[in-house]
Design a protein around this nucleic acid. Sequence first.
DNA 1: TCAGCGACGATAACGCCGTTATGAGAGGCT
DNA 2: AGCCTCTCATAACGGCGTTATCGTCGCTGA
Lengths: 201, 201
Amino acid sequence: MPEETDVRRALLEAAARLLGEEGPSALSTRRLAREAGTSTMAVYTHFGGMPALVREIVADGFARLFDRVAAVTPSDDVVDDLLRVAAAYRANALEHPHVYAVMFGSASLGGYRLRDDELDVGLAAFGQLVDVTRRAMAAGALREDDPAAVAGQLWSALHGYVMLELSGFNAVVDDPERQLLWPMLGHLVEGLSVQGHRPDR
Amino acid sequence: MPEETDVRRALLEAAARLLGEEGPSALSTRRLAREAGTSTMAVYTHFGGMPALVREIVADGFARLFDRVAAVTPSDDVVDDLLRVAAAYRANALEHPHVYAVMFGSASLGGYRLRDDELDVGLAAFGQLVDVTRRAMAAGALREDDPAAVAGQLWSALHGYVMLELSGFNAVVDDPERQLLWPMLGHLVEGLSVQGHRPDR
DNA sequence: TCAGCGACGATAACGCCGTTATGAGAGGCT
DNA sequence: AGCCTCTCATAACGGCGTTATCGTCGCTGA
């Protein structure tokens, strides 16, 4: 049960700022303490070490992702809702690329490991996508199927494009957003909406 | 023009082994020198520093990816070729998860940065996918379109699933391979094969 | 043959890092 | 007042990347 002392808040804000502005390599206990105007011990009394502090940052990242997706207002065009959810997801990742990388990377950054509570927040965000998918099925825009599986397929594709964009690999085409992201989602939705079923593989 | 001295080879092999067995955090000049039976200076005389050594590992990773995909023998079923290319891509990533993460992660690991020659090897591997895509279009299995764009869409989706699998997030469903990977690629191919065109977004 | 040279790498040092031990100070409770 | 707990500054330990220094080879040219 973390109480929001000033030092604790200062550390979290400095960590978020450092991660956002200079990347993961700038996140060190000493640098953090310097920026927050305290000593390295504060990191240990308030968090128990760098990995736990990173966990907090990751949890905040999932919470922000959830909020960003939740801010998409449903309309009467379910497919458009789906695409706007994707746009919100991508925008959040582009605005906080390092946090996104830590959230989903098997990356380094102190040997953290996703724990149940953070995973729950992540699953809650995924649940939003499942909801939109379920609504799209109810509206007939997507073929009836396991909503979690279909949402997972959409998520995989979206996540893949975002990761390639963050790595710069989307430059294999001239206009990635118009040649990769939206066509890919469009074609995937199209394949998911066909009524005839074809065996997979 | 690197000459293959024993020490150089020993360093590269130790680095590959450490990265594969213990992950990125085990890759340090001192540890590396210890494992290779030499001193840290060897890293600098042969590579110029850890980032350059990591670059070599990444280049090898791209070369191996290329070979793995090239080993897929074309058949008369172009869509099946495509799926077997995807399977080879995924298998390579699962066998060398840390290398794959470094190749495509905006990750840390010493502040490397993809340079032209490594990027060329990566683009060559992507070219293989473009070729398969082009053949699929010629065979009528995919609608005529920009092959690079279509290949990029397939790559994005595949890469996304692989990344989620490496992060453990594919556990949102019970049987990820049968509920996510193959259906996703199948639906995407289906959407890409429909003759009617729908405006994207 | 042998002097000279250049590459290789072992040693040690510098300033970082994460982490821990120690202790000083502040605030609340009895 | 006494005590206790929480907070954090200081200092230390070992490990890190990197650089400077320097000894030791093997080769080359006369």
